[in-house]
Design a protein around this nucleic acid. Structure first.
Length: 481
RNA sequence: AGCGGGGUGGAGCAGUCUGGAGUGCUCGCAGGGCCCAUAACCCUGAGGUCGCGUGGUUCAAAUCCCGCCCCCGCUACCA
């Protein structure tokens, strides 16, 4: 944590469907990382957005009776609204249909071509005429197209352009070896290494059977393959190759779901190596969530909008829950009951009630500056270390353990009997530290606390003694559900 | 098939890498305390052979090694 800048990116979501908690989970974590670095005084850039090209979208738009542009505009807006409702403070929401992205992708391709890493070849596979698309082996149902089981598939072969991915096998393995934190968590790293060792094929990066995409600059008959182009958002989003790019790149953390780890851990760094751009510092892979123990899927009808959840539970409770309840990297279950339990017990009863009882007492009896001995129980170093390893659940565990300590302190010191202003000062000053540490996770709540006690949310303020002022109790922080 | 993850008191999870009394968290259950506070807060207790071998290493294993069983993911041109 010595850099003065911090650049974090998330996966850009494919707008073939609506946003759900799985998407939200990852964005929230990115926001927490961004905010944590902000209060450390760093210059932070947080990029998120939507991925909007490709045949699937083209087809979905057609089905909805809309133009592709109309279709993606609508969905992209929904993602934006969802992130707004969760209080995500991103710096840019990139869309792969943004003009600057499209232009820069073409520049990038030309550059890669100059490096000699693009060649023309033949792509062949099983083609479904009714879908007008290739069917991958995995999607085959009884050897047939899953959507048209009565039609025979034809072995088709067409002209395509390829990126010389195979050339980078050893360089990639070197990268994983040299930068042990390139892929996190560790078990994902091992997974990727094993697969890369099995060998890499060149990657087909163009299509000719549809047109909803970025024109391939080397050959007008071709459209750039979505994946290849979408990956570039991480550098086009900060105006590669401008000054801004030079300031923020390489990204400190790129958050991704397990579904696209292959692209981000293998193809993406190879692309950068090809044109001589540094690779990111860390690719951080989050696990997948189920919702109330069910897979999140359209067919099960449980794609709950993050906006609906926010209206029901509030942004801070959702943010808190996803950071606290899941071990980062592993899969987890977003259970509404568990969310409610944590909201009631941890946010309302522990944190909310602590603030409530202390403000009441402080308002009645006042506070008097003294050395805060209570705060020694707060293990700041430990918390900072956890952050280095992105162990958000443990950070919250640690902070809430300190909240327990504060509640015990109130209990044992009985300030309602003693009217001890110094004890109350210690408590208020400790709550200040708690609120600052929690800001990245539950910004609204932290700001409410800061307003009552009149301090600034800044990491350096944790160790500065609180200025004594008149305290006035305001409303409750968390209503119970 | 290959690779990976999981199997811990009634429920859901941490803890396993870096071995040290079964420790912890959120609940549930049984008792008590407090009255400042959101019927919140605090204390005490019951409850587990940490998937199986009754395997190996060790003074010591939930943690390391070996074997087995059961769940769940991933396997590139699908974004």
């Amino acid at each position: 944590m010595t850099n003065k800048k911090f650049y974090v990116t998330t996966a850009i979501d494919y707008v073939s469907g609506e946003p759900h908690v799985g998407h939200a989970y990852q964005k929230i974590i990115a926001d927490v990382l961004a905010r944590w670095n902000k209060i450390q005084g760093k210059d932070v850039f947080f990029l998120t957005g939507t991925d909007e090209h490709g045949q699937k979208i083209s087809k979905a738009a057609e089905k909805a009776g809309k133009s592709e542009k109309e279709f993606v505009d609508e969905l992209s807006k929904k993602f934006k609204q969802a992130w707004k409702s969760l209080n995500l403070d991103y710096d840019r929401f990139i869309r792969t249909t943004d003009k600057d992205h499209e232009e820069k992708v073409q520049e990038f391709i030309k550059l890669m071509n100059k490096k000699g890493d693009i060649h023309k070849g033949k792509y062949s596979g099983l083609y479904c005429v009714d879908c007008e698309a290739y069917v991958t082996e995995k999607d085959l149902v009884g050897g047939k197209c899953p959507f048209h089981p009565n039609k025979e598939l034809t072995e088709l072969s067409e002209e395509a352009y390829f990126f010389k991915l195979s050339k980078y096998q050893n360089k990639l393995l070197e990268l994983y070896e040299k930068n042990k934190k390139y892929i996190l968590p560790k078990f994902r790293r091992q997974e990727i290494i094993n697969r890369v060792k099995e060998g890499l094929k060149d990657l087909n990066i163009t299509r000719t059977n549809f047109s909803w995409g970025i024109p391939f600059p080397l050959d007008k008959k071709h459209v750039t393959y979505v994946w290849y182009e979408a990956l570039l958002n991480y550098i086009t989003g900060i105006d590669w190759p401008s000054k801004k790019f030079k300031k923020f790149w390489p990204a400190d953390v790129q958050l991704l779901g397990i579904d696209n780890s292959w692209f981000h851990c293998v193809i993406w760094p190879a692309m950068l190596m090809s044109v001589g751009i540094k690779t990111a510092n860390t690719i951080l892979i989050n696990g997948f969530l189920t919702f109330n123990s069910q897979k999140i899927s359209k067919s099960l009808g449980n794609v709950i909008s993050p906006i609906a959840l926010e209206e029901k539970y509030g942004a801070d409770s959702i943010r808190y829950f996803v950071c606290r309840n899941f071990v980062f990297g592993q899969d987890g279950d977003f259970s509404e009951q568990a969310l409610i339990d944590r909201h009631n017990n941890e946010l309302a009863n522990k944190l909310g009630n602590l603030v409530s009882r202390v403000t009441s007492l402080a308002e009645k009896y006042g506070i008097e500056k003294t050395k805060n001995k209570l705060i020694k129980k707060l293990k700041l170093k430990k918390i900072e270390n956890y952050f280095e390893n992105y162990e958000l659940d443990k950070i919250l565990n640690e902070i809430f353990a300190f909240i327990d300590v504060c509640n015990e302190y109130v209990q044992s010191k009985k300030p309602w009997e003693t009217h001890d202003k110094k004890v109350l000062y210690e408590l208020v000053d400790s709550i200040k530290a708690i609120a600052i540490l929690l800001w990245a996770f539950i910004p609204e709540t932290s700001e409410k606390i800061a307003k009552q006690f009149n301090f600034k949310i800044d990491y350096n303020e944790i160790e500065k003694p609180l200025k004594v002022e008149k305290i006035k109790k305001e409303g409750i922080l968390f209503e119970k559900i």
